[in-house]
Nucleic acid binder design. Structure first.
Length: 278
DNA sequence: AGCCAGGGTCTGC
DNA sequence: GCAGACCATGGC
């Protein structure tokens, strides 16, 4: 994969793209702030920047952006440097995983902002994806910064830490409001120091994350996988639970141990798309 | 109407 | 340690 920057058009062009399908990546349930436009491109916001992506086969264009933002934000965000071919080969030793990969090939695990991942997956609990996106959209419109005509950044923990449950009423997020506020307070006052978590291992981080009211293992593991780069962590939701029972006799095979999070994402996509009617 | 959605907490055994 | 009630909201 190579990149070319066009300063005239303010765009990055990725060529010879392998194993990066933007539609699957944005629609596999790992992030909630990217939406498809009528022309098939995707627009979204991450790290306070709005960006569009359009893909044609092995070419992807990112716009508008600068070369610096590509190097400092998007290259990492889209997991460009990870060798998915090699990971897929390892996972393919298992026949069921191989089936799931042929279905979800091109999914990449995004490296999201840890606070956004934590807050988003608190909102995700006992909820469905369209409504999660709605609540997060209202959260950003109400408390984020306006960064374009229609775009708002994800609000910081510091901003949310000073709010009350009543302030969050416009979100219509129900019982989750008190969880969001506790997370915001603990992150803001460094009782949960997300920067420090980056230096800890998964078990140590999970222990700290679950000290937040409303954060259990599943939400913590989503934060570890999607926000803190632990690709060997496997969040278990109702779909994964069902898939593990039906497809794997309870747990993933040996070949998935180092990439359990990625295996999990293929299986999640596979299970939902096929509704597990296998 | 009742069930479900990328769950977690609290109570009672 | 584990099952069951409960939690808000909205789509089907």
């Amino acid at each position: 994969m190579q990149y070319f920057y066009d300063s005239q058009k303010q765009q990055i062009r990725l060529t010879d793209v392998k194993l990066f399908d933007i539609k699957k990546t944005f629609e596999c349930g790992q992030c909630f702030r990217f939406d498809e436009s009528s022309d098939g491109s995707f627009r979204g916001i991450a790290f306070g920047k709005e960006i569009n992506l359009i893909q044609k086969d092995t070419e992807i264009i990112l716009y508008p952006t600068t070369e610096d933002d590509y190097k400092n934000i998007w290259k990492k965000y889209f997991d460009i440097d990870r060798d998915y071919a090699s990971i897929n080969e390892t996972l393919s030793y298992d026949k069921t995983l191989n089936d799931a990969i042929s279905y979800g090939k091109g999914i990449r695990i995004l490296n999201q902002d840890p606070w956004e991942a934590l807050c988003s997956f608190i909102i995700s609990q006992n909820n469905n994806i369209p409504r999660i996106k709605g609540i997060i959209g209202r959260l950003c419109e109400n408390f984020g910064e306006k960064i374009s005509e229609t775009g708002y950044s994800f609000p910081t923990a510091d901003i949310l830490a000073n709010l009350s449950v009543e302030d969050l009423a416009p979100l219509r997020c129900g019982f989750r409001a008190k969880y969001i506020l506790d997370a915001a307070k603990k992150v803001s006052n460094k009782e949960v120091d997300l920067e420090k978590l980056k230096k800890l291992n998964a078990d140590e981080s999970r222990e700290i994350l679950t000290s937040i009211y409303g954060v259990g293992n599943k939400v913590a593991d989503c934060t570890l996988l999607f926000g803190l780069g632990h690709i060997n962590v496997c969040p278990v939701d109702v779909w994964i639970k069902k898939a593990l029972t039906v497809l794997f006799n309870g747990s993933f095979p040996q070949c998935a141990e180092n990439y359990a999070g990625i295996a999990q994402q293929y299986i999640f996509y596979y299970a939902r798309e096929t509704k597990l009617n296998i």
